[in-house]
Nucleic acid binder design. Structure first.
Lengths: 247, 247
DNA sequence: AGACTTTTAAATGTCAGACAAATAAAAATT
DNA sequence: AATTTTTATTTGTCTGACATTTAAAAGTCT
């Protein structure tokens, strides 16, 4: 690692935050490459002229973002981590979920965003979906038809269905970007209790989507997604109205 | 804060990671609400039966994800942070940038994802764009027309143009989701050197997009975005070919 | 010589205790 | 009553130590 990384002890910012930023910059700019080992904590403490606990706090910050991983033992240390799509997924889901819940994003806004993004995948999905993905979607529909299914399980299956649709586009970047949008919606979706009647309608639309994907009919997929969006928003509206009346 | 948070000292996972996860779970589940103060580091150390440095490492992990903020002084402490759209933006951009650079995502995949998402915004943008956003876009086009503009500055202006387009949809969730996709592309875009000739073509397509947005013609916006995508991919292809020939 | 066991060294993980610095409330002073 | 000083609390940082994990080195036996 180049030793040009510098921090300014005069700044009114935590030293550990400055050190983390310096290392983060080195990773982003490519000065530190994947799987490269950072100097040991003691060496970093020397280089930055701080104590080991301060260095450790900096490293934990980076670990929280999956930028490094640490290993104990003789040949251990901190290594630049290859950020996997999986790591990125889970971070995005956490961030999106908190963002929606903490900023009082209303259901319509979140719903609109989700379906707009999902519709972006539809044409690609119609073109590239695999037999395996179609099977996954049909399996989820079958699950959704079971009468004893709890609301929570129904929502989870709904998420799985839509993820399969997105994955059908065969573009990992799209899948990653949409994971957050789809999964973060689940808590909001859970606020809508799916009655037997509304489940029926949703399942029928899901079936239509799978059929259209199988027949490679992007327009029908799109059209059905619009219907699904409208229906979902109407359900949310009904729940909101009923709640207002109850007060 | 409820005191039911527990960790297992036997687990082969860092105590600080376990503590961070316990607090993170409490925030996500709503047991800890925005602006609520966590117990002091000393109290947390007591509760979790660990030392203060260990607690601090846990808190730094949470701070790295913008889940908490800390304040020194008598009434200071760690507070649950309201995750702002801005915080979420920058995290998403960091994650997306690293994801693309570390996983050798090819230009076509990233480009396809970006334009698929952007086209999802087009109809909403045509409907809701403000005069202010149109002005921003025209200003960026004007900048792009300046002959002395560096490649880096041209790319930055390109990003600003497309962000304005996305923001035109008037949906903060969409804007947040797409910020990563658009900005993370910039390093890849920078690999394409924009010649005067290719700039001219791009600017003309940009102009057409603004005009169509002003006239509220979603179909023309969509169609032009497709052209822009194809042209961008063709440029990248040319650069790749030329590089191959040079070897 | 080769296979196995033991030792050693290096690194992270954790702890204890201390002091510095910031900050707001409480106390003292004018 | 307003201002200044003191005090208590809390985070930020440092020092030094020990525990634990791990792989390599050294030693031992067949």
């Amino acid at each position: 690692m180049s030793k040009i990384m510098k921090i300014d002890p005069q700044k009114p910012v935590d030293l550990s935050a400055q050190i983390a930023q310096a290392i983060r910059d080195a990773i982003i700019s490519g000065q530190l490459i994947v799987d490269e080992r950072l100097p040991s904590e003691a060496e970093l403490a020397d280089q930055f002229q701080v104590s080991r606990p301060t260095v450790r706090e900096a490293l934990k910050r980076l670990a929280a973002q999956s930028l490094i991983r640490t290993q104990r033992g003789a040949t251990g240390g901190a290594f630049v981590n290859r950020l996997s799509f999986e790591d990125a997924y889970s971070q995005q889901i956490t961030t999106s979920t908190l963002l929606l819940s903490m900023n009082a994003v209303d259901f319509d806004t979140a719903c609109e965003a989700r379906y707009a993004l999902e519709r972006a995948c539809a044409p690609l999905s119609a073109q590239r979906r695999t037999a395996d993905q179609l099977a996954t979607m049909r399996a989820e529909i079958f699950r959704q038809e079971q009468p004893g299914l709890t609301d929570v399980a129904f929502c989870a299956s709904d998420v799985a269905f839509h993820r399969a649709l997105v994955d059908g586009a065969g573009n990992p970047v799209l899948s990653y970007q949409l994971a957050g949008a789809v999964e973060a919606m689940q808590p909001l979706m859970n606020m809508i209790t799916f009655t037997a009647r509304s489940r029926e309608e949703i399942i029928s639309l899901h079936s239509r989507i799978v059929d259209a994907l199988q027949e490679r009919e992007p327009d029908i997929v799109d059209e059905t997604l619009v219907k699904l969006e409208n229906y979902t928003r109407k359900l949310a509206q009904d729940v909101a109205d009923r709640r207002k009346k109850a007060v």
